[in-house]
Simulated assay, not measured.
Amino acid sequence: MTDSTLAPVDVVKRRNPLLVWLIWPLITLGIYNLVWYYKIHREMRDLTRDPQAPVAGPMLVILLLGWTVIGPLISYFRTGHRIRQAQMAATGQATCNPWVGLILCFVFGLQIIYYQLELNKIAV
């Protein structure tokens, strides 16, 4: 397939939310969270075909500004908006709520499960 004919299922990868949230980060000592964050941003950029969409920037915020606490919270909130935009581009219906993702940041990092579940709706 050429880039212009990619279907959402070809761009956004379906992942198991529990593996993304708990298992792979435990096995890789937390490195997989950064890899996952980079990959979802790249997939959303490819889906929306927006050359201005950030890919490495959000991951670097988590990596380098994690100590500030506010930087990652803003990044996760904006990720919720990007997932919402990707859902609109793929299905015309947005169900992701960035506020829910932000609140889940404070509950065992469950925003990862929530965001992956929302991304899986695109990959169906």
Rank of each mutant, 00 (worst) to 15 (best):
T79Y: 11
F108Y: 13
L34W: 03
Y115H: 09
L6H: 07
A56S: 12
Y37R: 08
K39I: 11
F108W: 14
A94T: 09
T95Y: 11
T48F: 04
K121R: 14
W36Q: 01
L6C: 05
V55D: 06
I83G: 01
G71V: 09
L102S: 00
G109K: 04
T91L: 13
Y38F: 15
M88P: 00
G66E: 08
L64W: 11
C96L: 04
W21K: 03
P98M: 03
T95R: 13
P98E: 07
V61W: 10
Y115M: 09
L64T: 08
I112S: 06
K121Q: 12
K39H: 08
F106M: 10
Q87R: 05
P58T: 09
L73I: 13
G30M: 05
R49N: 13
W99P: 07
P25H: 03
I74E: 07
R78L: 14
L110Y: 13
I83N: 04
A90Y: 04
L110E: 05
L73S: 08
I62C: 01
A90H: 01
T79E: 13
R84V: 00
V35L: 14
V20C: 12
K39G: 02
L47I: 01
Q87D: 06
I70K: 04
R49C: 06
V20W: 03
Q85S: 12
A56F: 11
L6I: 00
T48G: 02
R45T: 04
I113W: 10
I103W: 11
